[in-house]
Write a protein that binds this DNA or RNA. Structure first.
Lengths: 188, 188
DNA sequence: GACTAAATGTACCGATCTGTTCACTTTGGC
DNA sequence: GCCAAAGTGAACAGATCGGTACATTTAGTC
């Protein structure tokens, strides 16, 4: 196996797109930043859109893996893990280079619901919802679907707000709200 | 007063940018869509960025006016009005042509915090926070600042989620969460 | 009807965009 | 050492980008 060049391209393209945006990052800039020739790029990906889709696949895998693992590290029970999500988010917001949610930005630049980039961004959110619904179900909450969706609303709101540069920490505000919601819903 | 041409340009440019995005909407497309000559555009605005900033000013004025008025129409007390925000959002989501929050999209395409477009988008969010904090204060809640920020997290999350096309209505989920948070905080 | 300000149409600038072509070099396995 | 696969560099195509120049036409005022 030589997953080298292609994966290296996707990984470095991820950084560039995340930092600069999609339209604003041209293929020539990718050549300059990745050190990979344009010929090679177009041998691996027929179009820029294909490359972006590959980038989003990698981002989805990495982000979900990171978030799920961090939640497990920070919390024992399903309830604790759901709360811990907001501590994980807080850590993310503090990282240098944090620039919001890549999928929100992708769907902002490619808005038509029929656009593959938009659809793939929506898929990412659906996967998150599934996972949180399962977690809420395991936690024995009476309305796991509703609870999961509400916690995700807080998550999305916190990410957007953190990106727009608030003085207070949105992750902490969201965490407090989440605790209230979790304590209100009856558990088995 | 002849607020005609310039205002007409800003208004039609708003539609085009909202529908197509900022980078994806070129000045030539604006000429085609607005019927206003490029020469006139560049007499009113020195750069595309200046035009975008004017568009965002108009959007800020219109959106806040609409939201605040709708909240007053749908609710009597401050508490009722805060809850009614999510019904207003639900109405917005149902409108054809709904494409998410223009300021989130603007800050997604112009990410650097020092960018005027990014800064103006952040200003819009700050104005919302001020207004909601005042409303929560008038409602006699014990922590009006925190409550306002939490309700705004739910708002931002609902808008993003509605844009990414969920099956269930994010406005309703957010409304239920908001009611819980409002009932939990002690009022004078 | 004359004067002025505003708007128009069109051609153009240099830069950049996505994507292609082609001749050449590197690399790894046998 | 040989061969094929993979990668390189640079030039190029055609379209579009933001922005300008200039001569002309429209519209409002006295």
């Amino acid at each position: 196996m030589r997953p080298t060049k292609r994966d290296e391209l996707v990984q470095k393209a991820l950084d560039a797109f995340y930092r600069n945006g999609f339209h604003a990052t041209g293929m020539d800039m990718l050549v300059a930043e990745t050190g990979i020739s344009k010929t090679s790029m177009y041998k691996h990906f027929r179009t820029k859109e294909d490359l972006i889709l590959a980038v989003l696949r990698l981002r989805d895998e990495r982000f979900r893996n990171w978030l799920y693992r961090r939640m497990e590290e920070l919390g024992q029970s399903p309830k604790e893990q759901l709360i811990a999500m907001f501590d994980a988010l807080g850590e993310w917001f503090e990282e240098q280079g944090f620039k919001g949610c890549m999928f929100v930005k992708a769907s902002s630049e490619y808005q038509e619901p029929s656009n593959p980039i938009h659809m793939q961004s929506a898929d990412h959110k659906r996967l998150l919802e599934q996972h949180f619904t399962e977690l809420a179900t395991r936690g024995g909450f009476s309305k796991p679907g509703l609870l999961a969706r509400q916690l995700l609303l807080l998550k999305e709101g916190a990410i957007v707000t953190a990106h727009l540069g608030h003085t207070t920490d949105p992750a902490q505000d969201a965490k407090k709200a989440a605790i209230s919601l979790l304590n209100l819903q009856s558990q088995l």
